Computed example of a mutant assay.
Amino acid sequence: MLVKKTVPYDDLCMSSRTSATLAGLALAVLTAGCADPEADRVSLVSTPQPPASSPLPSLTVVPPPSPMLSSGPVKHPFPMATSLTDPMATAAPLTTTGPPRFFVSARTPLTRFPGQSKTAVFTPVPPAVHNAETGAFIANIPLPPGIAGSWHLAAAARDNRTFAIAGWTGSTNPSIRFFLVHLDENGRPEQPVALTPTDPDDLTLVHDLALSADGTRLAYSTPLIGGGAKISVLDVATGRRRDWKTMTHPMVSGLSWAPDGRSLAYVLGGRAIALLDLTAPDGATSRIIKAATGALPMESLAYTPDGSALIYATGHTVERIPLAGGPAQVLARPELPPDASLSLRFSVDGTGEHLLYVHGWRAYHADLADGAVTSVPITVHERPGEGNSPRATW
């Protein structure tokens, strides 16, 4: 399936031609994040709902010398959502199935500029299920109506069978939508369930996803046009949503649900680990757990199964820090190739014993008990080896 169109502003993120500039932007953001994270506040904003005629922003440009330049200020078309009165996820957690048998990979549409053309051609690709031991392709994940292909974000519940996936609409004004999929005991995906927010949202760029332990809530983080970022919690059954925002940093990543569903851990601007208390009243201050002390950035987080500690990486060193206080413990030091990202994006399974990350077209499995790392090739059915490498979760 081919979709040919003039490149909108946010779609430039999908172009391999812009990847170097985006990497530079990310590094600039992380450098700017060296400001004191203790000063940050994450607050719930209550504002009236927009009129039905509120227009979606439309900003279309051809790739300029610096693809992050815009043609002028753009206002976010929708106010922050407050319709979800109870953002906690306190139902019984899904049952952990032991060492993961499967992982799900997701990637952005393939992008190319034929000849010297300034018009991109996008080829959507589906998310896929793989054997966790061998990396072998098991099946493509079916897509809900209106979703043309995968986006490079997915999140797993602790049962290794329930996954939340970001999809790309592939329309004239492309956007990101979420859906859930469940795997059977052989790793075969069932029919997906689209998640439709009750409150309108403008999702053209999402930094991270996290699915709660009970599978009832999806958290995601997005930048706010004009500055700052927001964390959203979506009820997967009703589509109701609640948002929090921070004006200190434009990037929030590493979202992770506490096993009891009462708080969210996240990385603020690559420079600090913080907790958002979902039981707190409006205007609550986020609590900083750990601030970065060196130049290496943080990106991913995971709660331990008992909720007493967080697993994170500073650069490529994986560590564990107790929430009650105390020194960090080194769990693994994966050796990545020189061309790898400065930060480590990973997924920890429901047992808290197995860590997964991707470089190129290989999936790396770190045993957090002894730090040993093994790798397997990632095989896909749709255009293997083309485009940017996928991201993976289990």
Score class of each variant (00 low, 15 high):
residue 61 V to A: 11
residue 211 L to K: 14
residue 372 A to F: 02
residue 269 G to N: 03
residue 21 T to S: 14
residue 283 G to I: 12
residue 380 V to I: 13
residue 304 T to Q: 04
residue 28 A to Y: 00
residue 213 A to N: 11
residue 296 L to T: 00
residue 213 A to Q: 14
residue 280 A to I: 04
residue 145 P to E: 11
residue 260 D to S: 04
residue 245 K to F: 04
residue 101 R to F: 06
residue 188 R to N: 15
residue 243 D to K: 05
residue 299 E to W: 09
residue 287 R to G: 05
residue 292 A to W: 08
residue 164 A to G: 06
residue 302 A to F: 06
residue 134 T to F: 10
residue 386 E to S: 04
residue 52 A to F: 00
residue 233 V to M: 10
residue 240 R to A: 03
residue 214 D to R: 06
residue 206 V to G: 02
residue 293 T to G: 07
residue 313 A to K: 12
residue 284 A to G: 09
residue 238 T to D: 10
residue 238 T to Q: 15
residue 121 V to A: 13
residue 374 T to F: 07
residue 244 W to H: 01
residue 323 L to I: 14
residue 303 Y to H: 13
residue 154 A to H: 09
residue 168 W to M: 14
residue 1 M to T: 15
residue 388 N to D: 15
residue 248 T to M: 11
residue 160 N to Y: 00
residue 196 T to E: 07
residue 70 S to N: 11
residue 246 T to L: 05
residue 327 P to T: 12
residue 3 V to W: 15
residue 77 P to R: 00
residue 18 T to Y: 08
residue 203 L to G: 02
residue 36 D to I: 02
residue 120 A to G: 02
residue 357 Y to C: 07
residue 248 T to W: 09
residue 201 D to Y: 08
residue 210 A to Y: 10
residue 277 D to Q: 01
residue 92 A to M: 10
residue 61 V to F: 01
residue 211 L to C: 10
residue 86 D to E: 03
residue 312 Y to N: 02
residue 147 I to H: 11
residue 28 A to F: 05
residue 304 T to G: 05
residue 133 E to V: 07
residue 89 A to T: 06
residue 11 D to I: 09
residue 320 R to Y: 06
residue 276 L to K: 02
residue 7 V to T: 15
residue 377 P to I: 06
residue 12 L to K: 15
residue 262 R to A: 03
residue 103 F to V: 11
residue 180 L to Y: 03
residue 135 G to V: 04
residue 295 A to N: 07
residue 127 P to F: 03
residue 383 R to V: 01
residue 225 I to K: 08
residue 182 H to Y: 14
residue 329 Q to W: 05
residue 46 S to T: 14
residue 177 R to D: 11
residue 18 T to K: 01
residue 329 Q to T: 03
residue 156 A to G: 06
residue 131 N to T: 09
residue 79 P to N: 08
residue 191 Q to F: 12
residue 69 L to D: 04
residue 103 F to R: 11
residue 90 T to Y: 01
residue 332 A to Y: 00
residue 213 A to K: 04
residue 73 P to E: 10
residue 132 A to F: 15
residue 17 R to Q: 01
residue 352 G to C: 00
residue 359 H to N: 15
residue 45 V to D: 02
residue 68 M to K: 01
residue 291 A to I: 08
